[in-house]
């Protein structure tokens, strides 16, 4: 028989057992490790963090639905689209000053994104601590390609949102700049010459789609609402919903690029 040493891998440093006392006639061990001195509490616990992720995710999804519907108004013409943007800023007036509801929404959204990322990062770090030594060989059995895009997909979405805000909200990277109407900014932003912007949007939207493909039913599961037949339904629902959302969003830049909207 041959035996060759293949390769080395670092292993977890495991605390050595207490130095073994000499066998003595009176030896008794301390009681087995007991309950924790300090319990993690809701936000410290993995389940709690997941719940935060699910709730904030739901807020973000709600925003996306509204945002997509608003975007689709572009097909009703410039006036309709611009007045919608205007309405966003003036809604609630005169009961409250201009932009206040929008600002509230922006704060909620920002908080949601921050909390969402906080829980994602802290769970990811926990996970890597829970498996300090990686497998030499590993094969997924759940076929979870989508699942594996969640973490880096989220980061891509974040980068996209930053670009997107600079582009269409602040106009910093938009050819028309901040002073143009939203309609003009959209049309200019996705102009055929700037095909790469559209391409970037499409890629980012694909990521959003994948993120929601898993994230949607996962959120229900996390909140304890997805058992049994309900989960199979939610699974299909997540697929249909995220596809619809992506198509709804993609329609706008594509329409601009091919000249349907100009």
């Amino acid at each position: 028989m041959t035996s060759t040493i293949d390769r080395g891998l670092a292993t977890t440093p495991v605390p050595r057992r207490d130095a073994p006392p000499k066998p003595s006639a009176r030896r008794t061990k301390p009681p087995a490790p007991r309950g924790p001195a300090r319990r993690p509490g809701l936000f410290g616990s993995t389940n709690g963090k997941k719940a935060v992720m699910a709730v904030t995710g739901a807020v973000l999804v709600a925003f996306l639905i509204g945002h997509m519907l608003g975007n689709l108004k572009i097909f009703l013409g410039a006036a309709s689209f611009n007045s919608y943007a205007e309405w966003l800023r003036t809604v609630g007036e005169p009961a409250v000053p201009a932009r206040s509801l929008l600002t509230v929404a922006e704060i909620v959204l920002t908080a949601a994104v921050v909390l969402h990322m906080w829980s994602a990062v802290s769970l990811a770090r926990r996970a890597s601590k829970a498996r300090p030594v990686k497998y030499a060989k590993r094969r997924s059995q759940a076929g979870g390609y989508v699942v594996r895009t969640m973490r880096y997909g989220g980061v891509i979405i974040l980068l996209f949102v930053i670009w997107h805000l600079l582009d269409l909200t602040f106009g910093a990277v938009n050819p028309k700049g901040f002073d143009a109407t939203p309609y003009d900014r959209v049309v200019a932003g996705f102009a055929p010459a700037r095909w790469w912007v559209t391409a970037f949007y499409v890629v980012a939207l694909a990521m959003v789609g994948l993120h929601l493909r898993h994230g949607l039913w996962s959120a229900f599961q996390t909140l304890g609402l997805a058992a049994g037949r309900r989960r199979r339904f939610l699974d299909v629902f997540a697929a249909v919903f995220s596809a619809a959302l992506v198509l709804g969003f993609v329609a706008v830049p594509v329409a601009v690029m091919i000249g349907v909207v100009k």
């Binding site: 057992r17 073994p20 066998p23 003595s24 006639a25 009176r26 030896r27 008794t28």
Partner: peptide, 17 residues
């Protein structure tokens, strides 16, 4: 009044009374 056991992980021989 007791048993002699071997801790199978450390190999230590222990007496418990």
């Amino acid at each position: 009044r007791g048993v002699i056991v071997r801790d199978l992980v450390t190999g230590e021989i222990e007496t418990h009374l």
